[in-house]
Computed example of a mutant assay.
Amino acid sequence: MKKLLLAGILLAGLGAGAQQPASRLMAYEGKAQGTYYIVKYVSADTTNLQSSIDSIFRVIDASLSLYQPGSAINRFNRDGKVQMDEHMQKVVEKALFANRATNGLFDITVQPLVYLWGFGVTKPSFKGVPPADSIKRALKLVGSRYLKMKGQELTTTKKGVKIDCNGIAQGYTVDVLGRFLEQRGIENYLVDVGGELCAKGSNQQNKTWSVGIERPSPGDTSYEPIQGIVRLPGKGIATSGNYRRFFDQGKTRYAHTIDPKSGVALHNHIISVTLIAPDCFTADAFDNPLILMGVTKGLQFVEQHPEYGLAALYIYRDEDGVIKEAFSNNFRQYMEY
């Protein structure tokens, strides 16, 4: 799963004055999906939910984890067909929607390229940039047009096509956990899975949940970040960046985000893009495409498609190597810095 630029959850005070005396701040954390998770909520219900939370992760991993040999996604990649469970069906449907919305820049059939560039479960026999002919061969297996859904059945129309849902599954998991809390009558919560977050209601101080993000100091060239704060009033947030999973070759840094059209790993001047959306699932579906679009086209995309409810913050290097930021007009409403 991709790692994100979100610095962590900020609670602006944990006094109980703004809530009913019986309400408490409950918190659970652990490891899952190759990263950490944190679930926090304010409620009078003090039932221990740890086992239920861990069970949700296990069920989703049995569907979408490439690290579990018997998972539904690995069965599809092995056989070219699978009867999808509820989780896989929703994720594949959203992935196909994002593929259409971004003109192919989001594509879960990018799996052969992810592995070829060394960012998959197994590593290639060589290190560094793959040979051009290898990229060309892998590209022949990339394209959501090769996927066919009929009810719960997913098949491929071309032998060798495989999928990787890591670019969207964490955001989906965050929302599933949020819905689980709501089903228990919990209306004030924040869920964080590896930096992908959703929030609803208020923290224990009766204020909108806030999260810290890393942003550069003005004119910084070394990227020593200062902390900014954004509010999440019933929203989801996700970030895609080139600062966690990458390798350097010569003077070029190649990140784990792969362009499904060119077959080349991200190596532009963008450090990260952070998206706020109506839910984390949507934010996660669009963050990779927007980092591939670049600052100008990405911000234009956000402005031209208000129906998706996106707000974007880019952190990038200009032509002189100076780190700067740019954001869509609607991102301002969430900023506290």
Rank of each mutant, 00 (worst) to 15 (best):
S144H: 09
I270S: 06
Q304G: 08
D248V: 07
T109Q: 06
V191S: 04
L139D: 13
K162W: 13
L197M: 15
L14Q: 13
K136D: 15
P69I: 06
I323C: 09
K159H: 15
P233M: 14
G104V: 05
E187C: 02
K148W: 15
G219Y: 14
I9G: 03
Q19T: 01
K140N: 13
P218R: 09
P21N: 00
L116R: 04
A312M: 02
D192Q: 08
G194L: 06
V176Q: 10
F119S: 01
R78P: 05
N77F: 07
R137K: 10
N99P: 07
R179N: 13
L14E: 15
P233H: 15
Q83D: 12
I315S: 06
K207E: 06
L11I: 15
V176D: 11
G298M: 03
K90M: 09
I315C: 04
S71P: 03
G298N: 10
G167K: 04
Y189W: 10
R137M: 12
D107I: 00
S43F: 01
T239R: 04
L5Y: 07
V92A: 10
R215G: 08
L11C: 13
R231S: 13
A18P: 09
Y337T: 15
T109G: 03
S262N: 00
R184N: 09
T221W: 05
A18M: 04
T47R: 14
N77T: 04
I271H: 06
D287Q: 03
S71I: 00
G195T: 03
Q183P: 09
V230H: 02
L299N: 06
H87I: 11
G294P: 12
T122F: 08
K40S: 00
P233G: 11
E93V: 10
I73W: 02
T296R: 07
N268Y: 05
R145W: 11
Q83I: 08
S240A: 02
V302G: 04
V42E: 13
D107W: 05
V174L: 08
L299V: 02
W209H: 04
S202W: 02
Y314W: 11
